[in-house]
């Protein structure tokens, strides 16, 4: 079946995103826009995944747990996981890769942890906008070790794979990439057009569809192999 998706969304946990990007707000907006499938991809963290998973369920949306990881080369890589459990397991290991820098909310913005009812649980203290200690290929292997799949984000924009590294390295084995609707991409890649929304008004409308069954395993293998299997 064809699913209307937005697989690149930031919550109030990303310092650069609006404080309005709470689970209930994002899920309501996604429903209003006619989406079937959403992913939460905060910078270098999965701290709000559990809340979004529950809220998405309540609103009848299929929820793909994700993260947007920044590699040592400063390439932004989307990581998608086949279950909330796998994503949370990966999240628990992230502090080892993130370094010890603390957030400066006055400078970078709030990093707000919430529950599925949008209640504030606290602030994440670790700085989430830095680069991880792992290289591109190491980060891909790390994601794979949690049964996840890596998709380079906005490859022609700042922090995009092609912008930083000049072209798509074959060694990383990507089959899907995220790009703008007008970007010219090799037809061998499955191209995702997600919003990278940092505020509610920028969440995707029902305009881009992915062919997959309505379950996470099918979505993951579609991203992994570049085709629906």
């Amino acid at each position: 079946m064809k699913l209307a998706y937005d697989l690149h969304l930031h919550s109030c946990l990303s310092p650069c995103a609006s404080e309005d990007m709470t689970p209930q707000n994002v899920c309501r907006m996604a429903r209003l826009n006619g989406l079937d499938l959403i992913a939460l991809t905060d910078h270098n963290t999965g701290g709000n995944l559990k809340a979004f998973d529950q809220a998405a369920r309540e609103h009848g949306l299929l929820f793909l747990p994700g993260m947007e990881l920044c590699t040592a080369e400063e390439v932004h890589l989307l990581a998608y996981f086949p279950s909330l459990e796998a994503a949370l397991e990966a999240d628990a290991r992230l502090p080892h890769l993130r370094g010890s820098m603390k957030n400066r909310p006055d400078y970078f913005g709030q990093q707000t942890l919430v529950d599925h009812r949008d209640r504030v649980l606290g602030q994440e203290e670790a700085f989430l906008l830095g680069a991880l200690a792992t290289s591109l290929e190491e980060t891909v292997s790390w994601i794979t070790s949690f049964h996840g799949v890596a998709v380079p984000a906005h490859i022609h924009r700042s922090y995009g794979l092609v912008q930083v590294l000049g072209f798509i390295p074959q060694s990383a084995g990507f089959r899907a990439v995220e790009a703008g609707p007008k970007d010219q991409i090799d037809e061998n890649y499955l191209v995702l057009h997600s919003s990278d929304a940092h505020e509610l008004g920028l969440i995707a409308q029902k305009e881009h569809l992915i062919s997959a069954e309505k379950n996470l395993d099918s979505i993951i293998s579609t991203l992994q192999y570049g085709i629906t299997v």
Partner: peptide, 10 residues
């Protein structure tokens, strides 16, 4: 400061 394989390609 980049040390990725793509450096050599470029």
């Amino acid at each position: 400061v980049q040390t990725h394989l793509n450096v050599i390609a470029v």
